[in-house]
Write a protein that binds this DNA or RNA. Structure first.
Lengths: 337, 337
DNA sequence: CTGAAAGCGCTTACAG
DNA sequence: CTGAAAGCGCTTACAG
């Protein structure tokens, strides 16, 4: 069986077939409004017959647009993907972009060579970037914001003077709401397992918990930290219980940590919500599969991803967009509170 | 604060600075061995000083290489990402590629417009593709294999005459091993929850179960199907129990399904492994977080992703690589058998 | 509304 | 070992 290598037809060939100039074919391909309707028709016919696909590189070179954006992912990809939240954000962004001509490029930020990432970003490889991780050492990205359209998922920790576009949920309000649910069930010794304090989500959720307790006139000293993972939740829960102080409610800053904490409680024969009432954040498989299923704050991660992509696309197009976009969260009451 | 838009320096500028021709700079950038060492040095100095980054589009246009490969993802991104197996494969591929100059482009295959995907793939946008989903309707991809280097994760169902490169685990052997573990614990009424039969993993694991039972002289009629998700596992487990036939062991074709099945068993007060012994495939968070933790076959998904990327890169480079690469699996004994 | 032509920033035979 | 020059396949002012 002979290898039939059909070469991709070029603009030139299409032009010849349609009996017009290359410029005209290019205009049709790009949807220019000033081409006569019948010409558009015949050019499109030629394109279809020849199965013409424009060459991306040539196009980029000529117009300075790459039609692709980067999604920057921290090196610890394992942990990153293990978190359903990030997977959903990516998904939302990818789905949004699939209706456009724009392509999503996965960029792993190598910690050993952070310059590589910024080189890539500045190197004209992409028209813009979506940044998802946001530890305190994110400074490099916020610095780049001046030279490349960028949109952050969540609030970056390093506050640069320039304009930083972000799409986020109101984590303070989310934590406040979740904590209030526990309060409403009549609990008065309400602990928290907070997230990492070098991430805005960790910081804000801790603050929301504190605010809710303060508003209720309760002390907020039952505090341990975790890293948002189930293991982190286990460790923190043990530490909390080992203090020997009474606890009848706990706001846990992520469903993954809550999942881990639940394991510890079960192992020690502490009933939920009987002895301890729990509320958390993230309506993911951890929240749903836990027993009892967790009362939680649903932050629509997929929607956040889509909105991030949309904001970036508009930024690239030169439109003016608001610097902050806040996505609404909803409380999902289940059996744990 | 004035916007300082430092324009990216071009090859030409670097050449001028280093006092050589553009051709020479290009050779240095591309690591050509036939440039005098001292010239290499001074060119590299100029590159570093000017912070030069080659323009990807220009490069692609000139040499016909895009330096990027596509990772094709089925439209149902949600389910796709929810499966830790796929996330790990992506991760492995991304990590492997991060040490190269090659970029990973996420391509969502729109079911409503499958032609769009193949147009993109053939359109010279990428040098090759990694295909992960492999339902029976994958024909379109195997057909493309002639015109673009492609590597499949798992065995594609549609067997085209041409050469199809794939990286897979031996699912038949994996299922056989898992089933044997149950047999060794002395069980004789061994059921299975099989995966979708339009995916090779589903097909092969069912076959492995059957083979192990046949070798032990046992009947293999306790069979239900699921879709690899926890919900699918729940439904299938119920159906199996509702048959009213004795069951003392079960091989479940994915950890996610096993997780769901376990819920049903717990709810009905059936003890694991006391009453029913369980073994499954996938050493993911579902297998680890289940209680009891699941005895399972660890298929190194991350490694598979890395190998897929490696095979594709070598294919693109024109090297000859074996058509099939099989990744070893290992048995992980835990509390469920 | 359409075409001729310059130009995008590289790579790569071809000479030397 | 190095340079001059053609060419990759588009887009886009500029004329007309």
């Amino acid at each position: 069986m002979p290898e039939v290598v059909k070469p991709q037809p070029t603009l030139e060939l299409v032009a010849a077939r349609a009996g017009v100039s290359r410029a005209t074919v290019s205009r049709v391909v790009n949807g220019s409004p000033k081409v006569k309707a019948e010409v558009v028709k015949s050019v499109n016919a030629a394109i279809a017959e020849m199965n013409y696909v424009p060459n991306r590189a040539a196009r980029s070179l000529a117009n300075g647009r790459t039609n692709s954006i980067a999604l920057v992912i921290p090196e610890n990809t394992a942990k990153f993907f293990a978190d359903p939240y990030f997977a959903s954000v990516i998904q939302g962004a990818a789905m949004y972009l699939s209706q456009t001509e724009i392509t999503l490029t996965l960029l792993i930020a190598t910690e050993s060579d952070p310059a590589k990432t910024s080189r890539y970003l500045r190197g004209g490889n992409v028209d813009g970037a979506l940044i998802l991780s946001h530890h305190s050492n994110d400074r490099s990205y916020t610095e780049l914001a001046g030279s490349l359209p960028m949109v952050f998922g969540g609030r970056p920790m390093s506050r640069e003077p320039g304009t930083v576009y972000l799409v986020d949920v109101d984590n303070i309000a989310a934590a406040r709401t979740a904590t209030r649910v526990i309060l409403e069930s009549g609990r008065t010794h309400i602990a928290t397992i907070a997230g990492p304090q070098n991430m805005s989500a960790g910081l804000d959720r801790l603050r929301g918990w504190g605010e809710a307790l303060a508003a209720a006139g309760l002390a907020s000293d039952l505090l341990e930290y975790g890293d948002f993972t189930p293991q982190g939740g286990e460790t923190a829960m043990k530490a909390l219980l080992d203090r020997g102080e009474p606890i009848d409610g706990i706001f846990i800053a992520s469903a993954q940590m809550a999942f881990g904490a639940l394991k510890v409680l079960q192992a020690r024969g502490i009933s939920v919500p009987g002895d301890i009432s729990i509320a958390t954040v993230d309506n993911d498989s951890y929240a749903q599969n836990a027993s009892p299923p967790l009362t939680t704050i649903d932050q629509p991660a997929e929607r956040q991803g889509a909105v991030m992509a949309e904001v970036l696309v508009r930024l690239i197009a030169g439109e003016s967009v608001p610097e902050r976009t806040i996505i609404d969260t909803t409380l999902v009451k289940r059996g744990s509170h």
